[in-house]
Structure formats: structure tokens, C-alpha cells
Amino acid sequence: METIGIIGGGSFGSALADLVGNRGYRVMQWHRDAASAQRFNELRVNEKYLPGITLSENVQATADLQAVASAARFIIVSVPSLYFRDIARRLGNFLDGGHILISTTKGIEAHSFKLMSEVLREETCCLKIGSLSGPNLAKEIAARKPSGTVIASQYDEVILKAQEILSGPYFRVYSNHDLYGVELGGVLKNVYAIATGLVAALKMGDNTMGMLITRALAEMSRLAEKMGANPITFLGLSGVGDLVTTCTSPLSRNYRVGFLLGQGHTLDEAIANIGEVAEGINTVRIVKEKAGQLGIRMHILEGLHALLFEGKDLPTVLQQLMNVPQMQDVEFMTRHGSEKPGV
């Protein structure tokens, strides 16, 4: 029985550990502190992040990175972006070029605008690197509800191996070679979940929601294309799929932040109320700066930035948003894209 490594004892790492364990693999899951690993081994339940769900018998927790690296050739890294680089570097002490590393963390490094797969590349000697991204709420995967995800890598070997390990009766794994685009989709959608939360709280209606999500997609792919990703990637599960789920699910922290803001709470109140990190708030700041450097207009993002950090009030921001120039609906289309031959 092959051993699969999972770095991170959070909700998503645990949901994947259970999934892989149920597929018949031995799973070694690294927790940051030894007590938490020991507690899990006694109870088979991750009390803090995935309470009430007993994980597969095949999952074993440890606090020893080296043990994971020497037992597993396929390692999934699922730790918050804040600690990602540090943990990757420590893990890197025990890796060799044969290891396959998969990041599931949807985050971006503030000072460098680096995505997590890039951090893995910099902090380890591994080249066979991939990213797993899509509409994947940990609680639903743990509850074995049908879900789909995308494995992205430049290496066919990584894609095939990930599909072999992860796909099963309630989990479908699609492939994409556009690693950067897939990862960027997972990062950017958090921003727009805040906006849709707002719109939902204000009961603006379904037309508004439809427009918002679609224009969000336009903005995301515009930035991604400029950064070297393929905008078509955003039509897939890691783009539209993840965006729709995050933007409409009350399970999403970013959506809840937006919802509280829409109800008239301040940003600080909203953050305090959620009690967990809502990545989208930082992402707004980081992406706004990047878009400025690249000379790309991202109106919804700019509106959110004005609301969250520039002290603008909601009616003003909304009015500005409704007054931005009306551009072409679908950007990556030629003028004659709809012409039929012979017409």
C-alpha cells in the first residue's frame, strides 16, 4: 500500500486525508503541533477543524516532517498561506527531485505576488509540482457529497498520479496544464465573494447577482491573461466553478464578511464576527496594487478597495460602479467571432 503525505492538519487537509484514505492508500498527515497529532490518533476526529467526522482508518497523524517525506513520494501541502513558505522550506530539507508536491492553498504572498506553487518551487528542490483547485468546500468533501476539482501541473506525470490517487466515487479530478491560471482563479475569487455577500445582504436581486458574478469573471481573466495565464482556464471548474460556489455559499468566510458589511457592520466588526481569516480582504489590497502596476482596470475590485480601505460609503461606490464605461461583454473574442461561414 502506497503512502501519501499530507502537510497540514486543517479542515481541507483532513477532508483530503479522509478521501485518500478511503481510496485505499495509507495517509501520513502532518500536524503543526504534536499534541494535536496525538489527539487525532486517539480519536480519529479532527476536533478543531472538522468536528464530528470520523476519518478513514488509514489516516495517521504525525508532527514529524521528515517521517512524511521519507514515507511518501506524493505529498499534498495544505497549510495557510501565511505559514506556507516557512513550512515548505522546512519540508524542503527532506525532499528530493523525485517527490511530487501538490499545493491546495489558495493564497498569494503579499510582498512578492507569488502563488503557492511558486513558493514550493523556490523553497524545495522539487520540480514536479501541481496545484489542486476548484469548488471544494472541505465540509462537503468530508460529507462525501459529489464534487469536482482541477489538478493543474506542467507535468503529465503529476496529473496522472493525482487523478489515480484522488478520483473516486464522489470526487472527480479534471486536468489542466495552465498551472498559473488555475491557481490564480482560486486566489481571485475570494475578492468577489465579499462583493456578492454585500449584494445578497442588500437584497439587490438576482439580475444584480448574475451581472456581478459574470463581470467578476471578466476582471479575473483580464488580470490573469496579462500575467501569462490562459483566460480560457477561467471557464473551468477552478474559474467559474469555484467563483459560483464561493460567491453564493454562506459557508464561505469571504461571503459572510461581505454580508455583514451589507448589514451595516464595519470591517473590524465583520472580521471579529467571523473569527477566522478571510483571505479575500488581504487579496483586495494585494491585487489592487498589482493591477495598478500592470495598468489593468478592475472596477469591482477597485470599488471594494474604496469601500474597505478608503472610507467611501456604499451608495457612492455603487453609483461609481454603475457608471464605469460599458465595455465589450466577452473580451477574448474577435469581432467576427460569431459569424458563420458563408454568411
Binding site: 524542503g92 530539507n93 528530493d96 527531485g97 523525485g98 523556490e122 523553497e123 524545495t124 528542490c125 520540480l127
Partner: peptide, 15 residues
Amino acid sequence: DAHGRAVDRTKYLQI
């Protein structure tokens, strides 16, 4: 590697 750690390069080609 980038941190100066020794890398066994034969491993890149092995399964």
C-alpha cells in the same frame, strides 16, 4: 538548491 542544500539529481529521472 536555492538554499544551498545538496540535491541528489539522479532522483529527477527515477520512479
